[in-house]
Simulated assay, not measured.
Amino acid sequence: MEFDPQNSSEEILHHYKAGIGVFTEKMPGLAEHFNSFAEECFKEGELTQKEKQLIALGISLYSQDEYCIVYHIKGCLDQGCSEQEIYEAVGVTAAFGGGATMSQAVTLVQECVQELNQLKQ
């Protein structure tokens, strides 16, 4: 399954998790080290996990990484971010990423926030 922006956020997250599973089977040491590193990066510290998810969302938008955009929108929502906080992070990213960031914001970000909020209900 290739990335298709028409897929639901849930399908995109499932596709990513399935891919990580296969990669972990093929490269267990590398996957274990990467996962440990990522967990350490997202631990609560001087920055909250919520703030770290907002930063990760901004980087994902700037780099045009659709899987990470969806993954970190979910992370933001899981950490209690409001839609307004997410959109403010998008705005800051757009100050650096311009039109490419805005194209993701007005499509994928809005659709994903709406869909993932509905799944939480």
Rank of each mutant, 00 (worst) to 15 (best):
E39L: 12
A89L: 00
V106N: 08
L108W: 04
A18L: 08
Q79V: 09
V90R: 02
Q64M: 09
A56R: 00
A89N: 03
C68L: 12
L30F: 14
G45V: 13
E46T: 15
T107P: 05
G99N: 12
C112Q: 05
G29A: 08
K120E: 10
Q114K: 14
L77S: 05
K50F: 04
A95L: 14
H33E: 12
K43H: 09
E83Q: 15
Q53D: 02
I59V: 14
M27I: 12
V90K: 02
L119I: 02
G58W: 00
S63Q: 12
S63H: 11
C41Y: 04
Q121R: 11
T101H: 02
G75Q: 05
I69P: 01
F42N: 11
L54P: 01
D78L: 07
V113R: 13
I59S: 01
E111Y: 13
G99M: 13
H33T: 08
L108C: 09
V92N: 05
E39P: 10
C112M: 04
G21T: 12
A89V: 07
L61R: 06
C112K: 03
A56S: 14
C68T: 04
Q64D: 06
L30K: 02
K50Y: 02
T107I: 07
Q49Y: 03
F42M: 15
S36V: 13
V113L: 10
A105P: 00
G45W: 03
A95Q: 13
E83M: 11
K17P: 03
E46N: 06
L54V: 08
I69D: 00
K26W: 13
S103I: 12
G91A: 11
E25H: 15
